[in-house]
């Protein structure tokens, strides 16, 4: 397997007035093609910062980040735009769909920026929506969809331009347990089917098991790299978890839940 990203002594310091925050201290890492990675760590450990650097949204204070041999920190704004258009997909914790656009239009957006002709991009977007199980919801606006459905639209949007790497920053952070597993199953399956690299940020050790490699981040440094299971929990484990949840008080149920939305999403 080829190397996709190669990080050497990456350091990222934020300046807030006179105060310096070391978000990443000294990170050296490699990411290989077609693997699933998980950046695991507590809040504030620097996971998102690392992801943003990889996505070319920020430049490191020092060190270098190479994507297929090319140093991202040397690219111009224009080249970075092309990099984002052509090679990466991004899934956000809070979905970040454009509220004025329908599900379908949201999915076509990355293709619009790539100047793809209308007919072609609509075909691609519909195929993608079908793949995430929202084949007949394409006309809906984001506010007409549940959280899980919105995240699936966002998934379709990330995958639609056939990127080589998908970044997902706490993609299940706003979802309940059942939807979380569905989402994780979906995203990892899609990445594997398409032989894409997937880098997921999470603070949940259970979710991290979906990865081939778990990279523990702590105070801006890599604490450890371990092998994950490369799959989600088994049927029994999930049932067990469900029982546990049901026996617990249901008061802390997540706000957004697929169950309170119109049916018909699994056709």
């Amino acid at each position: 397997m080829g190397i996709l990203f190669e990080l050497k002594n990456v350091r990222k310091i934020y300046r807030m007035g006179t105060e310096k925050v070391i978000a990443l201290d000294d990170v050296s890492l490699t990411f290989e093609k077609g693997k699933i990675y998980c950046l695991l760590g507590t809040s504030g450990s620097g996971k998102s910062t690392l992801l943003n650097l990889l996505a070319g949204l920020e430049k490191p204070t020092s060190g270098s980040i190479k994507f297929r041999g090319k140093a991202l920190e040397t690219l111009s704004e224009k080249q970075l735009t092309l990099y984002r258009q052509g090679y990466i997909g991004f899934v956000f914790q809070s979905y970040n769909l454009l509220p004025t656009l329908t599900a379908l239009e949201n999915v076509t957006l990355p293709l619009i920026f790539r100047r793809m002709p209308k007919r072609k991009r609509i075909a691609a977007a519909r195929k993608m929506l079908k793949a995430v199980g929202l084949g007949n919801r394409w006309r809906h606006k984001p506010h007409e969809l549940s959280g899980g459905q919105q995240q699936r639209v966002s998934l379709a949007r990330a995958f639609v331009n056939e990127p080589q790497v998908i970044f997902a920053d706490e993609p299940t952070g706003n979802l309940d347990t059942r939807t979380t597993y569905e989402m994780m199953d979906m995203i990892t399956n899609m990445a594997r089917e398409r032989e894409q690299t997937l880098i997921i940020v999470t603070h949940d050790t259970e979710i991290s098991q979906y990865a081939d490699q778990i990279i523990r981040v702590r105070d801006g440094n890599i604490e450890s790299i371990t092998e994950g299971l490369g799959r989600g929990p088994s049927e029994e484990e999930r049932n067990l978890e469900n029982e546990k949840n049901n026996s617990n008080a249901t008061g802390d149920a997540p706000v957004t839940d697929d169950s309170n939305t119109p049916s018909g999403e699994y056709e």
Binding site: E77, K78, R84, L98, L109, A158
Partner: peptide
């Protein structure tokens, strides 16, 4: 936020 999202998913300046 919308502008930021658009930039992340490939909008140019």
């Amino acid at each position: 936020r919308e502008i930021g999202v658009m930039k992340v998913i490939g909008a140019s300046i």
